[in-house]
């Protein structure tokens, strides 16, 4: 019950933050120390992981070509899926990172009597992933208003767009629905798709549940428990955190501490988990290399110059007699036969 465990873990985290923040004096631990620590672990860990990857060389060009490469001038090439220049690689990577292009290709196969295998386009995963990631991104950007004073115009613009339905007060953000929906869909897919359920680990369920916890506590704070929290003090604390002068001047409300604790856990967990795909997607050699490998030599730093072919001389020594008999040119003629002398 890998998913059940994930729920238990997140519930435990919530209880820790809830009860912990009620102990007098502990609000500095949950409101200041842990968030700072989490950010340090996140930044340090992220940089460390990327450096670790970068430390290993890319010995061979292993681009995956998904279209016609550059060859003869009358053969139309696919610049996007078989890039030959830096700008083409950038275009390929841009679509990969911002539009999840590979997932857009996804197909679903089915076995029928016969046997007959059919394939049809299946874009659900692509759609769920887009909803989830873009909602998350906008929410992160929107939250920057809490750390800045005055709030920059671009953040206000994002907020305005996100609240464009103008439903309710405080106005409903589309991305709040999007994030919860995204998590639920991705989680549901993990449970119901037999292939994915079989491969899923605790590492796959836990981050989803954790993010769900963050989303729900955030939504509760904004829409339902507004009287329990003091938004002015939260803003003061967060601006303080951002300017390295954090102050907690009054009681803020437990729900806030739960929310910020879960976010801290997510940040600290990030560099040690599959969430590092955020960094890895930029560095994958099958996607970010040019397919010009016969035109420009790629250098492998550990190429071993001592590996030589089985020498021609050795080959000819072994087979010289046969070669001469067959009229194949040789470098060294056969020695004169002794018994003829």
């Amino acid at each position: 019950m890998k998913y059940a465990f994930s729920f238990l873990a997140v519930i435990a985290l919530i209880l820790i933050a809830w009860l912990g923040s009620q102990i007098p004096g502990m609000e500095y631990l949950f409101g200041v120390a842990i968030p700072y620590l989490a950010i340090l672990v996140f930044l340090g860990g992220f940089v460390y992981r990327v450096m670790q990857w970068a430390k290993s060389p890319v010995p061979f060009p292993i681009q995956t070509t998904c279209g016609q490469g550059k060859s003869l001038d009358f053969i139309k090439r696919d610049k996007l899926d078989c890039p030959n220049t830096n700008s083409e690689v950038i275009a390929r990577m841009f679509l990969e990172i911002f539009a999840f292009r590979s997932l857009f290709r996804n197909t679903k196969s089915e076995l029928h009597e016969g046997p007959k295998i059919t394939y049809e386009s299946s874009k659900w995963l692509w759609l769920f992933a887009l909803i989830f990631h873009y909602s998350f991104l906008v929410i992160v950007l929107r939250h920057m208003r809490l750390f800045t004073n005055p709030v920059p115009g671009w953040i206000q613009a994002i907020e305005l767009g996100d609240a464009m339905l103008q439903i309710g007060a405080p106005t409903l953000y589309l991305t709040n629905i999007g994030l919860v929906l995204g998590v639920v869909l991705l989680f549901g897919r993990r449970l119901t798709n037999p292939h994915v359920r079989f491969i899923s680990l605790v590492n796959d369920y836990f981050p989803l549940v954790l993010i769900l916890g963050i989303a729900i506590t955030g939504i509760l704070m904004r829409y339902f428990l507004r009287t329990d929290i003091d938004i002015v003090n939260i803003k003061a604390l967060l601006v303080g955190l951002a300017t390295l002068q954090p102050v907690i001047s009054a009681e803020i409300g437990a729900i806030f501490y739960i929310h910020i604790f879960l976010v801290s856990v997510l940040l600290a967990y990030f560099p040690f988990s599959k969430l590092m795909h955020l960094g890895g997607v930029f560095m994958s050699p099958t996607r970010n290399m040019k397919n010009n490998t016969r035109a420009v030599r790629h250098i492998n730093p550990w190429n071993d110059p001592n590996i030589k072919p089985h020498s021609y001389a050795g080959y000819e020594d072994e087979f010289r007699e046969y070669m001469v008999d067959a009229g194949i040119p040789v470098e060294k003629e056969l020695p004169p036969k002794k018994d003829e002398a």
Partner: peptide
């Protein structure tokens, strides 16, 4: 091999088990 091949390291770390490859 982890020290020699960036591909190996990244491929070990980045998979999110989305299952897109499963039936390919």
């Amino acid at each position: 091999r982890l020290d020699k091949f960036r591909s190996l390291k990244i491929f070990m770390d980045c998979c999110v088990r989305c299952g897109a490859c499963a039936d390919k």
